[in-house]
Write a protein that binds this DNA or RNA. Structure first.
Lengths: 153, 153
DNA sequence: TTTACTGCAAATATTTTGCAATATC
DNA sequence: GATATTGCAAAATATTTGCAGTAAA
């Protein structure tokens, strides 16, 4: 991620914490920084591993707490694509692509589609204030389709 | 659900079981029938409760197994909107609406949008065979927006 | 007759919670 | 100094698995 973008969204995080009178702890910023280092999806386990690698230990309780705060702040998106674990992604990434989910192997491919994004922006709904969108397209990836054809099922 | 529609999708289920050489058990059809009685989303617990009410006991293992079969058959859609439990819905319903998910209270409202459906039908993706899609619009429902405004947060 | 399917119970995995200690404001 | 936040461990919850018995093909 560009340093400029990182600085911008970090400022949004600080702004949110101030506004909600939440504390600016070292743990929260360390977790936030690590999240920004992921190029795409991640789960709690991956996040925890990365933090341990950097010798910054945080408890599971704090991880979940911080993720809740970031989701509430609108900076991180929660994806429940596979049953478990829940996957997360930076909102600035999620907004620009849709997700192709293979119903056979569970693999997820991201697809940029700015036209669709524009369509979504124009969506008007009564008694509801849209914040962001997630479009999941379920189907067969090419590998699984090939396997199914070969097995004749 | 209309009797005609029920008969049609039940036939599709039978066709799928035959094609995959899976067995046509009483449990599978009882579960399928109960699913068709739900007007919208349901989870494993709700499904189990309804079956018990009708004095048809099935084990959790069978419930999960049958749901997997129905999802594989493309007759039921799996929604992972809340962390747990996983929610399901008949595919014929899911295709015709998008989901408005409140980020505050978790409430889900369904919105019919046939224009969007047409857009999705036209979606072409390389090395991927789309089967169905789910569009989740996250945001604030009117109740939560009102509460937030009153609390001044 | 073969073996896929079922029920039950135990195992697994993730997320949540309670509480004492700590650090932010 | 008040209290939000943290870490740890235990609890809660959903889903999966192993295995013996049952029933569909």
């Amino acid at each position: 991620m560009e340093a400029k973008v990182y600085t911008e969204i970090r400022a949004l995080f600080t702004e949110y914490l101030t506004e909600k009178k939440l504390r600016k702890t070292e743990e929260r910023y360390a977790i936030f920084k690590e999240i920004c280092a992921f190029p795409g999806h991640f789960d709690v386990c991956m996040l925890s591993d990365r933090l341990e690698q950097d010798n910054f230990h945080v408890s599971k309780a704090t991880l979940y707490n911080t993720l809740d705060v970031l989701v509430d702040a609108g900076l991180v998106v929660r994806h429940q694509i596979t049953v478990q674990p829940v996957q997360y992604e930076l909102r600035i990434y999620a907004d620009t692509h849709l997700h192709l989910v293979c119903t056979r192997c569970g693999g997820i491919r991201e697809l940029r589609n700015s036209a669709l994004k524009a369509d979504m922006r124009n969506l008007k709904v009564s008694r509801f204030t849209p914040e962001y969108y997630c479009l999941y397209v379920y189907g067969l990836c090419s590998k699984c389709k090939f396997k199914l054809q070969r097995s004749g099922k």
